[in-house]
Structures are given as C-alpha cells and as structure tokens.
C-alpha cells in the first residue's frame, strides 16, 4: 500500500510518500495506527474514534473518494492524506 501525503504532513515526516506492506485488508483506522507507530506526529489522530471528529483534522482519500475510519484498505491501494476539508 502506498501513502501519499499533502504538504503539511510531508513537512512533518520529511518525505512525500511511503510504502507499507499489508498481508490482508485492514481498516483506515489501522493504517493510521501503523503510521503512528512509525511517526509520532500521527499519534494524536488515533484518539478520534469518529469520522466527524477525525475529519476536522485530517482527510483520507483513495481513488477520489473520501475514506471513513472503518473502510477497508488493501495492499494495492494508494491512500492520500490531506488536511481536512474546510472552505469558506
């Protein structure tokens, strides 16, 4: 699985993307846990148990679709992590 990061997150970990191998499908929540294991800056996002709460700080997209915490991710997927959806 490939994780691509937008500017704000790229700055935090020092690279625009990373690869994570998945033996089996896992939910987005578990992907965030894997990221937090590697990079402490992601740890704070684990406390949000609800899509609406997490969505205020971070958004996850795959194939142009907004992903929810419980959505499954497989090894061939590309996730894109952005700052939250906001707007005026």
């Amino acid at each position: 699985m490939r994780v691509e990061l937008s500017q704000a997150f790229e700055k935090l970990i020092g690279q625009p993307s990373l690869e994570i191998s998945l033996a089996e499908p896992i939910p987005v929540r578990a992907v965030l846990r894997l990221l937090a294991d590697r990079y402490e800056c992601f740890a704070k996002y684990l406390s949000y148990q609800d899509d609406a709460m997490l969505g205020a700080h971070l958004s996850v997209f795959s194939s142009g679709r907004f992903m929810k915490l419980g959505d499954p991710v497989t090894d061939g997927d590309t996730l894109k992590i952005f700052l939250p959806v906001t707007g005026g």
Binding site: S6, A8, F61, F82, L83, P84
Partner: peptide, 11 residues
C-alpha cells in the same frame, strides 16, 4: 479556510 484547498482539488 484555505487549509483544505489541496484536499478539495483532490476531491
């Protein structure tokens, strides 16, 4: 408010 502009472009 502009923090999510990249996100919105992606969406």
């Amino acid at each position: 408010t502009g923090g999510g502009a990249e996100n919105y472009e992606k969406a």
